[in-house]
Simulated scan of single mutants.
Amino acid sequence: MKNLLLMLMLVLAIAGCSRYGYVSLNYPTAPVAYLPEDVNSIAAVNRSLTREEDRDEKIVEAIITTEVAGSDRLASDESIKGVYDAILGLENVLLIIPATVKMYGTGTRELPELLDWNLVADICKTEGADALLVLETFDSNTDLLVSTATSQAAAILSTGSPVPALPGQIKMNVACYWRLYNPKTKLIIDQYQHNSYTSFDIQGGIIPPHALPETAYEAGRAYVERFLPSYYVVRRDLYKRTSGSAKHQFMAGYRRAEVANWQGAIEVWSELSDHGKRKTAGRACLNIAVANEVLGDTENALVWAKRSYEFYDDKLGRDYSKILLRRRNIEGF
């Protein structure tokens, strides 16, 4: 947590005439999945393609699900592109897209059997990769038919007859199943099924040509994000001002905080932390606590939060102390 400052997004809010301000912090959370340490390069292949002899069956499915026949064939490659771009966020990991490997699967949401491990090893050896990422299935559809039927049903109930109306918006769905093969251990490093949804405006019942590629691309990015840290936002309240003779000095500290000069704010508030007026001292201690957390010193933040309540009965300090104690129990800072 000492270098937490590098990962924080700080937003100091001004709440009009309120005596409170707040700062929002983004704290990192661990990735959902991890790559083995010896995996530095990954070959990615698309196995969701349909063989020529299976095209008729796929076209029937497309009609039923309001999918554009043949569109998945092109859009599935967009998912691979999404993986390629997103993996740049992983340190020391290279993605390789083989130019000559063409693989066929079910062409539907039905999951195929595992690839033969000898084939996995051959592809990785040829491409110089440590692992093989396979898009096992890719399937898309929209809710156009359902939305149209719902609109017609609503029109019949309200007017007694259907109206020639089409929905103004559709939801595009892309379902992907990914497997990450390790040729050395002959184990599946990761496997994950994911549904991506994106809404698009339509006119005259025509689905925008960019709807499916964009949704497919985001589906690829979503897979890689499992290996990246995510963040949760926390809000920390602090005081903007106090009353009496120290009000101008107190506000000077807050102004420093507004421009992210937290160390300078601490210097100002420290001079007021033992002020003769208990309310002012308690507020100064509370603000010093928040400033320390912003700077990554959570242990010192807890010390000052406790002091604001124990010495000066500041209720905000009491609540903040409990929050920091819970954080320490969970994260062990």
Rank of each mutant, 00 (worst) to 15 (best):
A75M: 06
A155Y: 03
F227D: 02
A305T: 05
M251Q: 14
A281P: 03
V259F: 11
K315W: 10
C124N: 04
A149L: 15
L135P: 03
Y22S: 15
A62S: 15
S199H: 06
I170E: 00
P112L: 08
L88M: 14
H210G: 14
I42H: 01
Y231H: 10
N26E: 10
N141L: 12
I123Q: 02
N92V: 08
A260S: 14
P208N: 02
A291F: 09
Y320K: 09
P229A: 07
I330V: 14
E331R: 13
G70I: 09
V120N: 04
R327V: 11
L95H: 00
L302F: 07
Y22L: 11
I170W: 00
Y84D: 05
Y181M: 01
G160K: 01
A284M: 03
Y223W: 10
E78W: 11
K125S: 07
N3S: 15
L115Y: 03
N182S: 09
T65P: 06
A305F: 10
G21W: 05
E293H: 12
E258Q: 13
K2M: 14
D38G: 07
E299A: 10
F250V: 07
G205R: 01
A153R: 09
S243K: 09
W178A: 06
Y34D: 14
T137H: 09
A291G: 01
L132D: 00
A121Q: 07
